[in-house]
């Protein structure tokens, strides 16, 4: 059942990220739903599930991107794992803490990818950070905050996390 749900999530993320989100992009920046999904799976299902789903999301989304295979696999998997770990350490998870956490991990993964980009100089790296990485991190944080708030209105999230 978990496997099927994970598979559906991964397969649905591709058209949402590649076809629908470009319509909702702000200044050509769209949120990374793969990162958000990996973090939520880690938060609610634990480290192992977060890692596996994050790796799968990173890999499949990367097949539909011009970026090199490998790095986004690791960043998404790492975010799922980290969310699972932090979810156990924090006693009270709120929509704000989820948003801030997502902003931080999105910023970290964006900086890592910018720093490992080929054929660009330092000035272009900083330009990329200002124009893409930072706005995307803010976007990811906002989407995470909104999604957690919506879920908390519909479900008893604290009980869901302790079950």
């Amino acid at each position: 059942m978990k496997l099927l749900l994970g598979l559906i999530l991964v397969l649905l993320l591709v058209p949402v990220q590649a076809t629908l989100l470009p319509h909702l992009s702000v200044w050509n920046i769209k949120p990374d739903l793969g990162l958000v999904a990996a973090a939520f799976v880690g938060l609610f299902a634990g480290e192992m599930e977060g890692l596996l789903v994050g790796l799968a999301i990173g890999w499949v989304l990367n097949l539909f991107s011009a970026s090199e295979l490998g790095l986004s696999l690791l960043t998404n998997g790492g975010v799922g794992l980290l969310a699972g770990f932090l979810g156990r350490q924090v006693s009270q998870v709120t929509s704000i803490s989820v948003g801030v956490g997502l902003l931080a991990v999105s910023l970290a993964s964006g900086l890592l990818e910018a720093a490992t980009s080929k054929n660009i100089d330092l000035a272009q790296v900083w330009q990329m950070v200002g124009a893409i990485v930072l706005p995307q991190a803010c976007f990811d944080g906002l989407v995470g905050t909104g999604l957690y708030w919506l879920l908390s209105q519909r479900f008893q999230l604290a009980r869901l996390r302790t079950e």
Binding site: V14, P15, Q17, A18, T19, P22, N28, I29, K30, D32, G34, L61, N62, F64, S65, A66, S67, S72, E113, A114, S117, M128, I132, Q136
Partner: peptide
């Protein structure tokens, strides 16, 4: 049928 799934490319 779609655009790059990331913002970097």
């Amino acid at each position: 049928i779609g655009r790059d799934t990331t913002n970097r490319y």
